[in-house]
Amino acid sequence: MRIRSGVAFAVKLIFLLSLCVLVYSAVQIFKAPVEARHALEDWAKKREEAPRLTVPEDETPLPAGMINLPAQPDDSSASTNTSISQSGTTYTEGEVIGEIYFPSLNKRVAILEGTQRPQLKRGAGHYTGSAVVGTSGNSVLAGHRDTVFRSLGSLKKHDLIEVETVDGKFVYEVTGSTIVDGEERGAIKESDTPILTLITCYPFSYVGSAPERYLLSASLIGREPLLQEQH
Rank of each mutant, 00 (worst) to 15 (best):
A124Y: 07
F15D: 12
V171I: 15
S77E: 14
R213D: 04
T115M: 13
E229P: 04
P225Q: 04
T128N: 03
A110G: 13
S83D: 04
A36M: 03
G129L: 14
A142I: 02
A50H: 11
S83Q: 02
D192P: 11
A64W: 02
Q86I: 06
E99F: 02
T92S: 14
M1E: 01
S191D: 01
E93F: 10
K45V: 12
C20L: 15
A210I: 08
T60S: 10
S191L: 01
E183A: 13
S217V: 10
S154G: 03
S79W: 12
S104E: 14
A64K: 03
L22Y: 09
V133K: 00
L196V: 02
T200R: 09
F30Q: 01
A50M: 10
I14P: 01
T200I: 09
F170A: 11
V166N: 08
I67Y: 01
I188T: 08
G186H: 10
E229C: 09
Y202L: 13
G222Q: 03
V34G: 05
R185W: 11
R2Q: 13
C20S: 11
L227H: 07
G222L: 01
D75S: 14
I221F: 05
V109C: 06
S18H: 04
C201G: 07
T200C: 13
I29E: 06
G143S: 03
E57M: 09
S85Q: 03
L16R: 12
K189D: 06
L196S: 04
S85L: 08
A218C: 08
I84Y: 01
G88I: 05
Y214L: 14
L53A: 08
F170P: 07
L227I: 15
I199E: 07
E99N: 07
V132L: 00
G222A: 00
D181Y: 10
S136H: 08
A36V: 05
S219P: 02
A142C: 03
V174L: 08
A71V: 10
P203Q: 06
C20W: 12
N106P: 05
Y214D: 10
R122C: 07
L40P: 04
F15E: 13
V132R: 04
K46H: 12
V55W: 06
L22M: 11
A124S: 13
Q72H: 06
R145E: 00
P203L: 04
Y91S: 07
Y202G: 03
S209V: 12
T165L: 07
T197S: 09
T90V: 15
S136F: 06
I67W: 00
V207W: 01
I100E: 01
I199G: 02
I29A: 09
